[in-house]
Design a binder for these strands. Structure first.
Lengths: 211, 211
DNA sequence: CGATGTGAATAACTTCACAGCA
DNA sequence: TGCTGTGAAGTTATTCACATCG
């Protein structure tokens, strides 16, 4: 059975929430509690968990530790949670600090930048290489996933280079569509669209026709 | 008629694409061209445009200038495209430089940060105020939209303050759910979920594109 | 022709509602 | 009783397919 992209996104979220609950010492959780934390409905949570074969008990709900383990078993294994970053401007540095927290599941094994001013240094524990070393590092480390935080003009070229070096999963922060071969997956984070949508609904309300 | 959130997002894309086409001097565009640029289908583009009453001609497709004008008329007017930013760390600075391009439709009228080291300065043309001045500035400037680029622990408190000052549209970059009163719209940009999903499909070797 | 505009069909996603269990 | 697991129903989103037009 094929699990939808939306469900995968929510499973990721549930995992984060469960890790927090476990840390707090909570041993069991009901679907409606997870739903409230996640912003969805109880039925939705149960469906998502059902999709990957997780079960709970009517009496106590879901066992937090078991559920977390199941989710971790379903989500990418450690070797897929190593990624690289291209572009070490403000956004790139923000991403590095984002993934340096010790509870983060992901590791940025290397960063790259075209600007010599930014390379050769270690930022947030991550070595910053010149772009020329991209292929050697990505191939050498067998990295499959990359984050793209470069200017619009550079995005497609860098994406091509990454794909050539074996990357098959990309998170693109540049506000431009990038083309990749069949079999490569792209997540586009489009900040200006998000801001525009927020403004749109903010406006609607101001105009007085909410909902 | 109610237009879906997804359609709003795509309309925002179309607008950006049309602005580029106009700049290039292209006068007409077919739905399948826009579709290719945006990564969707021609039928989807026509549906979206139909939803807001735009029309083209079978002979030449859509008139770029007219369509752009229509989209601009539908999207938020200038007074809703003024926003504030809270949190001037790396992410916040990245956002400021992002929206400083003169082709950007949006203006960040003020930024705020709790850290006195970061306040009092002008960054990318945007004055950075201490958090204490948030209410005065947001209320005084009648700002309705804000971007939240603060640490997880601070997100809810800042969101509350923003809402109290009249903000009704939020773009939240903190990886945590924030609670807002009925009528306030929140866009959550969840980077770690995006990265995880990219890893998931990279692992699976499945294929797809996500906006 | 090769497009648009659109009803109709299909697919995807979400919620309902209830049996069954502790 | 109050929850899970899940078929069925409902809702939303997307694609199909075709009448129509220059």
């Amino acid at each position: 059975m094929r699990i939808s992209t939306k469900t995968i996104g929510r499973l990721s979220h549930y995992r984060r929430l469960l890790a927090e609950l476990l840390e707090k010492g909570q041993t069991h959780v009901y679907s409606h509690e997870l739903a409230r934390l996640e912003g969805g409905t109880a039925a939705q949570v149960r469906r998502d968990l059902m999709a990957i074969g997780c079960t709970g008990s009517p009496a106590k709900g879901y066992d937090v530790a078991v559920l977390l383990k199941d989710l971790e078993g379903y989500m990418p294994p450690a070797e897929c949670r190593r990624c690289v970053l291209v572009g070490v401007g403000n956004l790139g540095r923000a991403l590095l600090s984002y993934f340096v927290g010790r509870d983060s599941q992901y590791t940025v094994v290397a960063a790259f930048d075209a600007d010599p001013e930014r390379t050769g240094r270690v930022i947030h524990g991550c070595r910053c290489h010149p772009l020329e070393e991209l292929d050697a590092v990505v191939t050498g480390e067998s990295v499959k996933v990359a984050m793209l935080a470069v200017p619009v003009e550079a995005a497609q070229g860098v994406a091509d280079a990454l794909v050539r070096s074996g990357v098959v999963g990309l998170v693109n922060f540049a506000p431009v569509r990038i083309w990749v071969p069949e079999g490569v997956y792209v997540e586009s984070v489009d900040v200006s669209m998000r801001l525009e949508r927020a403004s749109f609904y903010a406006c609607q309300r101001t105009r007085g026709d909410v909902k």
